[in-house]
């Protein structure tokens, strides 16, 4: 399903004819839209909405500094989730690259094993979550494993897709000049599959985050899941929204890092 989503660039800005001023206008409108949303939310929560469900943004910011960031237990939970995402992501990249390269290496591998990968990708993995908890316990191992199992698929799929796009002539000429398999991977496959690889890495990051957070929310006896459950069940929206905001910022930063890396490595193409 995400293969098709990958075809739509995550943040494609349509090209402008009008030049800078038009672009600036767009950026300022966007800021105004965001500001308007925050103000509308503030007014709604303060005067109309049920205070047990809605919390104005100002109260959320207050709760962020008064309840979330000062509590070492919550800070620990956030830090743990962050570490889990990083470890899971690194493992997903390594496993995804190894599997992707070995599946995509030959026509035979692509035709026989790629459909199996696609088949596995089609399974809604969230139903396996209880199984992961049974196997790995309720600690970080389960969340990392679940993050990895989500993150590897877009990486494998995009590595294989990227290798398919390499011109066979380059491969033949490189091997005729005596390139080893490693040389082929390093000097022919890698440079050509960079765009596709990074599309996979970006989606892989999104899905790793999804997997880790799903597992964190499922295990509600500790970590982030405990706190979100506590706040939701005691109808205390301000710290709930604050905690979610912290995690959303973490997700945005990690996504941005991947995108910066992508821009660096694909610059030579343009």
């Amino acid at each position: 399903m995400t293969v098709a989503a990958a075809r739509v660039p995550a943040a494609s800005t349509p090209s402008f004819i009008g030049g800078m001023s038009r672009r600036a206008k767009v950026i300022w409108t966007r800021r105004l839209v965001l500001l308007g949303l925050v103000v509308a939310f503030e007014i709604y929560a303060r005067f109309i909405g049920n205070p047990r469900l809605f919390s104005p943004p100002s109260a959320i910011v207050y709760a962020l500094f008064d309840e979330i960031l000062v509590d070492p237990r919550i800070r620990g939970a956030i830090y743990q989730a962050f570490t889990e995402v990083l470890v899971a992501y690194v493992m997903a990249i390594i496993i995804g690259l190894v599997v992707g390269l070995s599946v995509g290496w030959s026509n035979f591998g692509r035709r026989s094993f790629y459909p199996i990968v696609i088949l596995l990708y089609a399974i809604p993995q969230v139903i396996l979550l209880p199984l992961f908890v049974l196997t790995f316990g309720i600690g970080p191992a389960c969340k990392i494993a679940f993050g990895v199992s989500h993150g590897i698929f877009p990486i494998i799929v995009n590595v294989v897709a990227g290798m398919r796009n390499v011109n066979a002539l380059y491969l033949r000429s490189a091997s005729s000049m005596g390139a080893s398999n490693f040389d082929l991977a390093r000097h022919v496959y890698f440079p050509h599959m960079v765009p596709s690889l990074f599309a996979g890495l970006r989606l892989g990051m999104t899905l790793t985050l999804l997997g880790v957070i799903l597992a964190e929310l499922y295990v509600s006896t500790g970590g982030i899941g405990y706190w979100t459950k506590l706040y939701a069940e005691t109808f205390d929206p301000a710290p709930l929204f604050a905690l979610i905001a912290v995690l959303a910022v973490m997700a945005i930063l990690l996504n941005e890092l991947v995108r910066i890396a992508e821009r660096r490595f694909t610059r030579w193409r343009n």
Binding site: V8, P9, A10, A11, S12, T13, P14, F16, K25, V26, T29, R30, V33, L34, L53, T206, L209, L210, I213, L214, L217, T228, K229, Y231, A232, F235, P237, L240, F241, I244, L247, A248, A251, I252, N255
Partner: peptide
């Protein structure tokens, strides 16, 4: 075109955040 340029990146970058984070909010509501 203007609103496409304004809104499309906003929608796209919201989708890059794991929306599962909002699940406790939906439970609350």
């Amino acid at each position: 075109r203007h609103w496409t340029a304004v809104m499309e990146p906003l929608i796209a970058s919201t989708f890059a955040i794991p929306l599962t984070l909002l699940f406790p909010v939906f439970i609350l509501f």
